[in-house]
Each structure stands twice: as structure tokens, then as C-alpha cells.
Computed example of a mutant assay.
Amino acid sequence: MRKLSVIAAALATGTLAALAVTPAQAAESGSALKVRGVQYDAPGSDSNSCTTGNTAAEYLTIKNYSTTATVNLKGYVVRDAVGNSFTFTNNHYLQPGDFVKLRGGKGTESDASNVAYRGSCNFIWNNDRDTIYLKTPSGAIADSHSYTKSGSDADGNGYVTFHG
């Protein structure tokens, strides 16, 4: 009976509605890691060739917006709207204010060069529209953004900024 009276009081004051919204907001706004931007349309003609293609020119920038905490990307997942995904399997530490460019293609991951490679020469981001999800190792959404070429890319250069 105590639970019902607490819920009734919360409904009457609007507190329950605020409590119901808090977890979803905390999932994104509570994360220090955010998708800063995406080069969704690599310059030039798209080519998936590992030797002569341009998949490395397609990249996603993830930034640590914390002013105090270092974050290890190991276990974080980046995925698109249809389920193509990449999991950071190595330790990759982002100091406060630091970033990493997750590039297509193959290469050597480097903290010093702020780069990681998906290990695939296939493009992941659609050139017309897509949704980007950054998930924590536990599966919670740290950040997500949708874009369209016509609505999000004002200068038409194939790059969209989400967080400055």
C-alpha cells in the first residue's frame, strides 16, 4: 500500500514523469564519449579495394569530452542503422579532450596517432543517410546521431559535425 501512495503522490506532482525520463537522458548525457563527427562520404569515387580504394578516408571521430577522466575504448561498439558494427577489442585510452578517428580499411591502431581501423575495406556509413550508435561495453547507448546528406551536410563535403 505504501508503494501505491508514493506512486500516486509522484503522479500528482509530476515527479514520476520526470523519473521516467531520467534514465534515457542519463544514458547519453552521462557519457564522456561522444561522436564528434563523421566523414560519411569519402572523397573521390567509392572503391572497396584494400590496395587502391578509399575506405580509409571514411571515418568517425569519437572524442572524450571529460575534463578529468581518461576513458578506455576497449569493449565500446560503433554500429550503423542496419547493424554493421565495430568493437574496440584493444585498449585505446582517450585522455580528457582526446579523440580517435575510427577509419575504414586496414592499418595499425595507435594511441599516439589517434587512429583505429575497422579492419574491413567495406564502407560502413551510407552516403545518403544513416544512424550512428556508440555503445558502452555494457550495451548502453553512449551517443547516437542520424544524418541525411540533404539535411545535415550544408556544404556537401561528406562530413557532418555533431559535437564541437
Rank of each mutant, 00 (worst) to 15 (best):
Y159R: 02
V6M: 14
E58G: 06
M1D: 15
G139D: 06
E28L: 01
A57V: 05
Y76M: 07
K74V: 01
Y147H: 08
T13S: 07
A112P: 09
Y76K: 03
K106V: 15
A9C: 12
V115N: 04
G83R: 03
R103W: 01
T51S: 03
A42S: 05
Y65W: 11
W125I: 03
N127D: 13
S113E: 15
S45M: 09
V82G: 07
F99Q: 12
F99M: 03
G151Q: 04
N126C: 01
C50F: 03
G44R: 05
N114V: 08
D41T: 08
A81E: 14
S31Q: 08
K3R: 15
T89I: 11
T51I: 13
G104E: 06
N114Y: 07
E58K: 02
L16P: 09
L11G: 10
S138M: 11
T108Y: 11
K3V: 15
A112S: 01
I141W: 10
S85W: 05
V160F: 02
G83H: 03
S31D: 04
A26L: 13
L102R: 00
G97E: 07
G158D: 03
A26R: 12
V6A: 14
S120W: 12
S113Q: 15
S5G: 13
I124Y: 05
P96R: 08
A112R: 03
A154Y: 00
Y59C: 05
A142T: 08
A56D: 01
H145P: 11
V115D: 05
N48D: 07
A57Y: 10
S45L: 13
T148N: 04
Y147S: 02
K34E: 06
R2I: 14
A10N: 06
S29M: 14
T136L: 11
Y133K: 08
T87K: 07
P137A: 00
L19K: 07
S31P: 02
Y159V: 04
K63V: 13
A116E: 00
R103A: 10
A26T: 14
T136W: 11
F88S: 10
A140C: 13
R36F: 05
V71D: 03
A32C: 04
A26G: 04
L11S: 11
I62E: 06
A142N: 09
T67N: 05
L73P: 01
G30A: 08
D80A: 03
K135P: 07
D98C: 10
N64H: 00
S110M: 11
N90R: 14
L60P: 05
T67F: 09
T55Q: 02
G37K: 09
R103L: 04
L134E: 07
E28R: 11
I141P: 11
N90V: 13
G97F: 06
N126Y: 04
L102D: 03
S85N: 12
V82L: 13
V77L: 03
S85A: 14
L60D: 02
Y159H: 03
D98A: 14
H163A: 05
A9F: 09
Q95T: 09
N90M: 10
V35M: 04
P43T: 08
Y133S: 02
T108R: 12
G44I: 06
D98M: 08
G151F: 06
S31L: 12
S120R: 09
Y65T: 12
G37N: 06
T67M: 01
A42Q: 00
V100P: 07
K106F: 14
N157H: 03
N126Q: 11
A154W: 12
N91Q: 10
A116W: 06
A69E: 15
Q25A: 14
F88Q: 02
L19Y: 13
